[in-house]
Structure formats: structure tokens, C-alpha cells
Design a protein around this nucleic acid. Sequence first.
DNA 1: CTTTATTGTCATCAAATTGTCATATTGACA
DNA 2: TGTCAATATGACAATTTGATGACAATAAAG
Lengths: 231, 231
Amino acid sequence: MSAMILVVEDEPAIRELVMLNLQQAGHRPVAADSAEQALALVRESLPDMILLDWMLPGMSGVEFARRLKADSRTRDVPIIMLTARSEEQDKIAGLETGADDYITKPFSPREMNARIKAVLRRRAPQKAGEAVEMTGLRLDPATHRVTGNDRPIELGPTEFRLLHFLMTHPERVYSRAQLLDQVWGNHVFVEDRTVDVHIRRLRGALEATGHDGLVQTVRGSGYRLSVHAER
Amino acid sequence: MSAMILVVEDEPAIRELVMLNLQQAGHRPVAADSAEQALALVRESLPDMILLDWMLPGMSGVEFARRLKADSRTRDVPIIMLTARSEEQDKIAGLETGADDYITKPFSPREMNARIKAVLRRRAPQKAGEAVEMTGLRLDPATHRVTGNDRPIELGPTEFRLLHFLMTHPERVYSRAQLLDQVWGNHVFVEDRTVDVHIRRLRGALEATGHDGLVQTVRGSGYRLSVHAER
DNA sequence: CTTTATTGTCATCAAATTGTCATATTGACA
DNA sequence: TGTCAATATGACAATTTGATGACAATAAAG
């Protein structure tokens, strides 16, 4: 459940409060005190989620969100808006702009964490940090353990991440390029064919418990994790 | 889950309501109608949790909480503040003082119980004084003693805190950064690799009783304390 | 004010992981 | 069936990562 979360909030006290809380919850918070600074940060690297104060000096939260939604690169980053109780109409505007949820200030740490987790679960399952299981194959990010029918399975770091991604996005084909983006990170220069090798290593490890059949090749397209028999 | 809960609330009607509710939920509530009286009660015996009205005649809730946080004996008692919907600014102040959660008046019994339960559950593992034990390895924070199969084990201060944290959060992987935050404190500048060294020292000390196997390395992720075989 | 523990950092060694390539297989289709 | 493109596989060298021992700085104890 470790996600990079961008906090956009101009009030220093509240910002620090939120930062501290996110850190405590195991996330990696990044701060911005204005939409402009936030845009610069987003240009650098894409966060997994944005906590956005709706009342900002300069560019408003609405405008900032609108820009993010206009760019295909940032369109899918979940946004939770922070809003004062009186700014009811902003909630409407916010949801229309595409915010995933809103938190009314003042809010409790517990509420904030719950909402963040809920949104992550919906929008970025692999960041939610929950154990995944299918057909006796089980992967738990918290303990970093993988078992097949309760027998331990050893995986290297990359194979672990690969399996984690596939298990949180099953029944769907991903091209090698997509897998590189999702599992390796969007800014790496790695040969497409390298994915093949890691798929093979993953299959090799799953073979011991007969779960290797879950990893299916879709000729000409990529790979897929599926509980259904191949073809 | 039965806990002694101190209720600090000057309004008799609300106080009785809360008391009744707590009793109904199986807790042992104690009442105080002012911060002064509450302080006296806390001096007598430490409650497991404090429900604190933020608006009190005489010493305010903020001041009361600050005092509790200043005393090492009472620092770790969880505080849930009770606040009227209009006292929004106070919540912010409350967060800074270290309250664990907030309940906005008027509140439902269901909400109150849920929040109390959540806070108790969260605070439980970190609760100081409780001895922890697993597979013959025992650590008692009160006496600051560690034994393996009843044989004493010598640990340096840092190794002690490290083991304490790991034993209260077993089976879970923690990155070096997380361990630095949790064991060293959030605001220290220490090299990541330093954790390795202390892990080694800890293992060295546990070796005498064969408990060193509990401290497991998760390559690429961090460390984990686990009773399960490493691989 | 010595003497002793404790801590954080490094340098070094061993082991695991990773990306790539060359080569073998496989599958689609004329 | 033969051909071609895509995928699987085995091997390998470079790179990372963790373990370990030594050491100087600092804190604690006597």
C-alpha cells in the first residue's frame, strides 16, 4: 500500500498534517503549495494519486484538475479533493471535473486513510496493498509472500512485481510495452523481449504448484493472466 | 474488547449518554466534568482511552491534551475528541496536539463504538509495557529484558527498539526507510544501509538461542520478522 | 577524566538478480 | 508441407543488493 501521493494545499499547517499522516500510513507524500508547483512536479513524475485543495491562490483546484484531465498522460491519476464544509457547490464542480472522491475539512486521519485506500483499490489495485488470491495461488504484498496451494513459492523482485500486477489485473491482455510501463516503470529503457524472459522465469517458479498455466501467451498481442483454460 | 475509558465532558446530559453507551458496549467508563478532575483521575490510574470534549470550562481540552502528551506516563493514551460541528478550527488544533480521532456532535452510538474500536485496535500493538513473545523469544518493555528460551539475551538500545518494533509487527515486510522512521524516528538523517548493520547485530545476539532465523531478509524490499521458515 | 559501549559509515566480499543475445520451438498460413 | 514471424529457452556477463568486519566518532559509565 505504498503509493506516491501529491498533496496540493497552500495552508502550511494543514499540508504538514496531511503529509505526516500519509507517511505514517506508509505512503510517499510529495508536497506542493500551489497548482503551478504541482504541475511542475507532475511533469517530473506521475504520482499515484493527488490530494487537491479546492481553494488555492492563483490557479484554482478546478482549473488544475481540468488540465490534468485534458492530458492523456495524467488523465487517469485519481484525484481526491479537500474541501471546506461551506464549499458545497465546489463538490459538485469537482465531481464533474472528474475527482474520485472528496474529503470535507476538517477531517480525521482515519477518514482520510479509508478514502485513500478505497480510491486506490478502485483505481490502482496493485497499490492498495491487499492480498490477492486465485485458484490456490496467493500473493500478499504486506508479507511479501507467494504461495501455491499453501506451498511457498520463491520469486525474484521483478517476477514478484510482475505477478502482482497480473494478479491485480487478471483476464486482460497486456502488450510487452504496457507491462514494461506498469511493472518496470514508465521511464526505463529495456528491450521488449526482456519481458519474455521474465515471463518464463515466472512460469518456471509457478510450475512447482502447477500454476504456470495461468500465465498465458496471446500471440501477436502480449500476455494475460487467466483462470480459464487457454484458447 | 473491554477498556477503561475516561469521559471528560461538562454537559451532564451528554456525559450520561456517552457513559451509558460505553457501558452497553462492554467498556468500563469513568466520568469527569472538568479537565482538573480528569487530571486527578489519570493520576490515580491510567485509562486505556480518553474521550475528551474540546469545549470545557476552566482548562480547555487542548491544554489538557497538551499536558497528557508532555508526560511520558500518559503520552501514549489515545485521545478521541468530541467536538461540535461549529468548532471546526479546534479540530485542526486537536490534530496538532496529537488526538487520534474526532467525533462530531451529535454522533450516533454506532459511530462512536466503531471509532473507539478502531483506535483501540490500532493502538494495541504499540501499547508500551505489554510483553511480547514468539517461539520462545520474549521481550518485556517494562523490565527492558529479552530472553530466548528463558536464557537472557543482551541487546544494545537500538537493537532492543528494533526487535520490539518487529515483534509487535511480525510477518510484515518493512523497507529500510520505514524501519528508520519507526525505530529511529521520522526526523533523523541516517544512511539506509545502517539498518543492515543493526539487523546483523540483532541477528548476532539472537544467534545464541537460535532465534536469529526469525529475522528474515526480503531481497529488494527490506526485512521481516516471521515464525515461518524463510523459504 | 579515563574507560567502555554504542552508533553510524565504509570498503569489501559473496550471492542474487537482471537484461541481452543466440538458438531452438512453435504456430499461422500459403 | 514449407516458410516466416513470433515466442520460448538456455547461457552469460554486468550490475545490484545484502552480509560482514573494521573503524572513528560519540555517548555513557565509572
